[in-house]
Amino acid sequence: MLNFLEEWSFFGGSILLIFIGLYGVLSRKNMIKILISLGLMDTGVNLLLVALGYVEAANAPIINSVNPSNAAAFVDPIPQALVLTSIVIGTAVLALGLALVMKIYDKYSTLNISEIRGLKW
Protein backbone atom coordinates (compact mmCIF):
# COMPACT_ATOMS: atom_id res chain seq x y z
CA MET A 1 0.00 0.00 0.00
CA LEU A 2 1.29 3.51 -0.59
CA ASN A 3 2.55 5.31 2.48
CA PHE A 4 1.37 8.80 3.29
CA LEU A 5 4.11 10.57 1.37
CA GLU A 6 3.50 8.68 -1.86
CA GLU A 7 -0.22 9.10 -1.59
CA TRP A 8 -0.16 12.85 -0.97
CA SER A 9 2.86 13.79 -3.06
CA PHE A 10 0.72 14.04 -6.20
CA PHE A 11 -2.52 15.55 -4.93
CA GLY A 12 -0.75 17.79 -2.42
CA GLY A 13 1.91 18.71 -4.94
CA SER A 14 -0.55 19.72 -7.62
CA ILE A 15 -2.69 21.73 -5.22
CA LEU A 16 0.47 23.46 -4.02
CA LEU A 17 1.35 24.23 -7.64
CA ILE A 18 -2.11 25.69 -8.20
CA PHE A 19 -1.80 27.74 -5.02
CA ILE A 20 1.59 29.15 -6.03
CA GLY A 21 0.36 29.86 -9.55
CA LEU A 22 -2.79 31.61 -8.33
CA TYR A 23 -0.89 33.67 -5.79
CA GLY A 24 1.61 34.54 -8.50
CA VAL A 25 -1.15 35.80 -10.80
CA LEU A 26 -2.75 37.81 -8.03
CA SER A 27 0.32 39.43 -6.56
CA ARG A 28 3.13 39.79 -9.11
CA LYS A 29 3.68 43.16 -10.72
CA ASN A 30 5.60 42.07 -13.79
CA MET A 31 3.29 40.91 -16.57
CA ILE A 32 5.56 38.18 -17.74
CA LYS A 33 5.73 36.80 -14.21
CA ILE A 34 1.93 36.79 -14.21
CA LEU A 35 1.91 34.78 -17.42
CA ILE A 36 4.45 32.35 -16.03
CA SER A 37 2.36 31.82 -12.89
CA LEU A 38 -0.69 31.34 -15.13
CA GLY A 39 1.23 28.57 -16.90
CA LEU A 40 2.25 27.20 -13.52
CA MET A 41 -1.39 27.05 -12.47
CA ASP A 42 -2.25 25.23 -15.70
CA THR A 43 0.40 22.59 -15.18
CA GLY A 44 -0.78 22.17 -11.58
CA VAL A 45 -4.31 21.43 -12.73
CA ASN A 46 -3.12 19.09 -15.45
CA LEU A 47 -1.00 17.21 -12.94
CA LEU A 48 -4.03 16.94 -10.66
CA LEU A 49 -6.16 15.61 -13.53
CA VAL A 50 -3.70 12.89 -14.37
CA ALA A 51 -3.14 12.07 -10.71
CA LEU A 52 -6.88 11.52 -10.31
CA GLY A 53 -6.70 8.88 -13.03
CA TYR A 54 -3.76 6.95 -11.55
CA VAL A 55 -4.31 3.32 -10.57
CA GLU A 56 -1.76 1.91 -8.18
CA ALA A 57 0.65 -0.56 -9.68
CA ALA A 58 -0.95 -0.34 -13.09
CA ASN A 59 0.85 0.41 -16.29
CA ALA A 60 0.31 2.79 -19.18
CA PRO A 61 -2.78 2.00 -21.25
CA ILE A 62 -0.90 0.74 -24.28
CA ILE A 63 -1.30 -2.79 -25.54
CA ASN A 64 2.08 -3.82 -26.80
CA SER A 65 4.43 -6.68 -26.49
CA VAL A 66 5.03 -5.97 -22.77
CA ASN A 67 1.32 -6.40 -21.71
CA PRO A 68 -0.33 -7.94 -24.69
CA SER A 69 -3.95 -8.16 -23.53
CA ASN A 70 -6.41 -5.79 -21.98
CA ALA A 71 -6.79 -8.10 -19.02
CA ALA A 72 -3.85 -6.38 -17.35
CA ALA A 73 -4.48 -3.45 -14.97
CA PHE A 74 -4.32 -0.19 -16.86
CA VAL A 75 -4.29 3.40 -15.69
CA ASP A 76 -7.44 5.42 -16.57
CA PRO A 77 -6.76 6.69 -20.15
CA ILE A 78 -9.41 9.44 -20.26
CA PRO A 79 -7.73 12.00 -17.95
CA GLN A 80 -4.57 11.58 -20.00
CA ALA A 81 -6.50 12.39 -23.16
CA LEU A 82 -8.05 15.42 -21.47
CA VAL A 83 -4.67 16.60 -20.22
CA LEU A 84 -3.24 16.25 -23.71
CA THR A 85 -5.82 18.76 -24.94
CA SER A 86 -5.67 21.13 -21.99
CA ILE A 87 -1.84 21.38 -22.18
CA VAL A 88 -2.09 22.58 -25.75
CA ILE A 89 -4.83 25.05 -24.79
CA GLY A 90 -2.60 26.27 -21.96
CA THR A 91 0.32 26.87 -24.31
CA ALA A 92 -1.90 28.57 -26.88
CA VAL A 93 -3.21 31.01 -24.27
CA LEU A 94 0.29 31.62 -22.96
CA ALA A 95 1.67 32.29 -26.40
CA LEU A 96 -1.12 34.77 -27.15
CA GLY A 97 -0.57 36.38 -23.75
CA LEU A 98 3.11 36.76 -24.49
CA ALA A 99 2.39 38.39 -27.82
CA LEU A 100 -0.02 40.79 -26.10
CA VAL A 101 2.59 41.61 -23.46
CA MET A 102 5.11 42.44 -26.16
CA LYS A 103 2.59 44.76 -27.81
CA ILE A 104 1.68 46.43 -24.49
CA TYR A 105 5.36 46.84 -23.75
CA ASP A 106 5.78 48.69 -27.06
CA LYS A 107 2.91 50.98 -26.09
CA TYR A 108 3.48 51.63 -22.38
CA SER A 109 7.20 50.72 -22.34
CA THR A 110 6.65 49.20 -18.90
CA LEU A 111 5.90 45.66 -17.80
CA ASN A 112 4.42 46.69 -14.48
CA ILE A 113 0.74 45.83 -14.66
CA SER A 114 -0.40 48.36 -12.08
CA GLU A 115 0.80 51.15 -14.35
CA ILE A 116 -1.41 50.06 -17.21
CA ARG A 117 -4.58 51.76 -16.03
CA GLY A 118 -5.72 53.13 -19.34
CA LEU A 119 -9.08 51.48 -19.01
CA LYS A 120 -10.08 52.94 -15.66
CA TRP A 121 -13.59 53.86 -16.41
Binding site: V25, M31, M41, I89, V93, L96, L100, I104, K107, L119
Partner: peptide, 21 residues
Protein backbone atom coordinates in the same frame (compact mmCIF):
# COMPACT_ATOMS: atom_id res chain seq x y z
CA UNK B 1 -5.65 50.18 -25.90
CA UNK B 2 -7.50 47.06 -27.11
CA UNK B 3 -4.33 45.06 -26.42
CA UNK B 4 -4.62 45.98 -22.78
CA UNK B 5 -8.31 45.00 -22.68
CA UNK B 6 -7.57 41.70 -24.38
CA UNK B 7 -4.69 40.98 -21.99
CA UNK B 8 -6.94 41.59 -18.99
CA UNK B 9 -9.59 39.32 -20.43
CA UNK B 10 -6.93 36.70 -21.08
CA UNK B 11 -5.81 36.70 -17.44
CA UNK B 12 -9.36 36.41 -16.11
CA UNK B 13 -10.16 33.79 -18.79
CA UNK B 14 -7.08 31.85 -17.78
CA UNK B 15 -8.06 31.86 -14.09
CA UNK B 16 -11.59 30.89 -15.11
CA UNK B 17 -10.40 27.95 -17.20
CA UNK B 18 -8.37 26.69 -14.25
CA UNK B 19 -11.51 26.69 -12.11
CA UNK B 20 -13.41 24.94 -14.88
CA UNK B 21 -10.73 22.27 -15.33
Amino acid sequence: SSYEASFKYLIIGGVGSVFLL
